[in-house]
Design a protein around this nucleic acid. Sequence first.
DNA 1: ATTATTTTCGCAATCGTTTGCGAATATGAA
DNA 2: TTCATATTCGCAAACGATTGCGAAAATAAT
Lengths: 329, 329
Amino acid sequence: MSNTTLKKIAKVLDISISTVSRALKNHPDISVSTKQKVMELAQTLEYEPNAMAVNLRSKNTKVFGVMIPSITNNFYDSFIAAVEEEARKSGYSLMILQSGDNPEAEIENLKIYRQNRVSGLFACISQETINMAPFYKMKEAEIPIVFFDKVPDDDTFDKICLADKDAAVLAAETLLEKGKKNILAIFGNNQLSITKRRLAAFCGCIKEDKQVKLIIEHANNSQQAEEKTEHHFQPKQKPDAVFCMSDEILTGVMKSMQKMNMKLPVDTGIIALSDGSFPKLYYPEITYIETSGYKLGKLAFERMMDYIMGNTEPKELFITSRYVAGGSL
Amino acid sequence: MSNTTLKKIAKVLDISISTVSRALKNHPDISVSTKQKVMELAQTLEYEPNAMAVNLRSKNTKVFGVMIPSITNNFYDSFIAAVEEEARKSGYSLMILQSGDNPEAEIENLKIYRQNRVSGLFACISQETINMAPFYKMKEAEIPIVFFDKVPDDDTFDKICLADKDAAVLAAETLLEKGKKNILAIFGNNQLSITKRRLAAFCGCIKEDKQVKLIIEHANNSQQAEEKTEHHFQPKQKPDAVFCMSDEILTGVMKSMQKMNMKLPVDTGIIALSDGSFPKLYYPEITYIETSGYKLGKLAFERMMDYIMGNTEPKELFITSRYVAGGSL
DNA sequence: ATTATTTTCGCAATCGTTTGCGAATATGAA
DNA sequence: TTCATATTCGCAAACGATTGCGAAAATAAT
C-alpha cells in the first residue's frame, strides 16, 4: 500500500507518531534500535510522505509555475525543458499553464498558481498584457516571479531576456561583412517590444553603410512571411539576402524559397534569429544567430533559486547570442 | 493580502471558523445576514482557499500528471495542449514531467506523482520500459492511469492510441492508387511496437500488388533518415515514392530531397504519417495521413473523466486517421 | 406559559506531518 | 544510595479547511 501513513506505522510498532517521524528523519533523539525498526517497517509498507500534508505544514509546495502563451512552440519548449531539468535536481516539479496570449486567461492562471501556493513563477506575459496588477498580487502573496522572454517594462520585477539588440546587430554585421547590398528584412508584429528592439538595432547597424539597400517588412505569421518574400523577389531585382527575425518567419521564407526554386546560398542568402532547431531542417542548413530558449531557462532557474536564497534585489539579465554558421549565406 | 484564512475572517467577525466556511459555501444553515457579512469581508480581504489544506482534507488535488518522453516534441505538445484545454474547463491543472525515454527517470516521476497525489496520470511509456511494476504501484495508490501513444501490451490498463494500422494502410493504399511502383518506406526504431504495427500493416497492403517493388529502411533519427534516403536515390534507379513513418523521418527525407535537388511531385513523391505541422513547412506541402496528438489528447481526457466517474473497466480506444492532400504526391 | 420545532451557529475531530517542550527512563558520578 | 546528567520518547499544538453532531436561541404551536 502506498497510502501508508506515519500513524499506521506508529500503531503497528506501538510508538508515537512523532517518534516515527523523527526516526525517518534520522533525528538524534531517537535510538538506533527504534530507528531501524521504523525504517524497516516503512520500507516494507512502502511509506511515502504525503506531499499535501507536508506542504500544508511547511507552507512550501516545491512546485514552480511556468506560464507561457502556448506550449506548442519550440522556443518555449526548450525553455521548459531546461527549467524542468534543473527543477528536478532541486526536488521541484513544474505546473505549466498556457495563457493563449489572453490577459484574462493569464489572470485566471495566476489565481490557480496562488491557490496552489507555488514556490515561484516563471512568467512570459502575453502580447496584450497592459495591467500588471494581477502580477503584483503574486508579490503580495510572497510568490517570487521571474519574467522571461516577453517581459514587462516595470523594473521592480526580475527579468531574463534574450540579448535582442546584440543578436540583431550580430546578424546585421554578418550581412555587411558578407558584402550584401540588397537586404530584405522581415520582422514580426511591430506592436511587440521584442520586435521594436530587434528592428531598431538591426536597422541602426545596416544604415551605417550607405551603399546598402534595405527593405523592411512585417509579418504576423508564417504565411504572411511567405507572401511578403514572394512579393519582393521579382525577376528584375532580387534581394541578395533575407533576414528573418524569428523561426516563424524563417519557415515562411523558406517555403517561398522552395516555391521559387531559389538555391541557397547562390541565388540569395538567408540569416535568421533562431534557437537552432528549424535551421537544421533545411539543406543547406540555415545560418543563424542563436537565441536559445534552453539557455534562457537555465538562467531563469538560476535567478529563481538565487531569489529564494534571499537575493531579492530585482535584476534584469540577458543571455548572449552566438553566430552559428550554416550554408545559407 | 492573499494569505487570508478562514480563521482570520472568523476572528474579525467574531464568529466561528465553521460558520465562515459554511457561509462562503452558501450553506443553508447560515443566515443571510451572516452570509453577507462574511462574503463581503472575504471579498475585501481577497480570501482564496488554500489548496494545500483543501487537498489534504478532500484527498483530491485536482491535478493531473502528464508523463512524456520529451516536451520538445510537436506531437506531445499538441497532446498536452488538448489535455490542458479540457482540464482547465474541469478545474484541473497539469503536472508535466519528462521521462527522457529513461525507465529510471520514469520511476522517479511516478514517485513524484504519487507523493503529490495527482488525481490521475496520462502516461506515455518510454521505449525501454519493460517492467510495468512501477505503474501497478500507481493503481494500488488508486491513481488512475490513461496510457497514450506508446502504450504497454498489458490490457488491464486503459489505452488511447492512434489507429496505426489504419493510418499505415491508408498511406499504402494511396500510394498504390497513385500507381507508384518503386517505393522506399522508412520506418523508425524497429524495437518499438508502434513501428512494428505500422510496418506490418503497410507492408501487408503493398505486398498485395506483386508489381510493386518495396524497399524498407529503418532510421532512429532524422539524420539517419537523410542518409538512408540518399543511399537509395541513385542516378540509375530512383524510387518513385517515399513513405515516412513519422515527422522525424519526414524532416530527414526532405532535407535530402533539397540536397539532391529533387522536385516534388515530379521527380518523386512523398507521403508521411504526421500531425500536420511539419508537412506545412514545405513547398509543395507534403501529403500526409493525419495522426493528431490534439485529438489524442481530447480522447484521453474524455476517457480519464469517464474513469473517474466510475467507469473503471479498462478500454483501448483509437482515434481514426484522415488523408490530407498536399502537393507532394 | 409551556412545550415543540426550527433556525442559526459553535465544538471538536479529521486529513498527515512536523516540532517545541516536558516527562520518563537510563546512565553516570559522587 | 543519591543526585545530576543524558538518552529516548510522547503530548499537544500547529498548518487551513471541512463536517457531523449537538447546543443555544428564536420562533411557532398548544
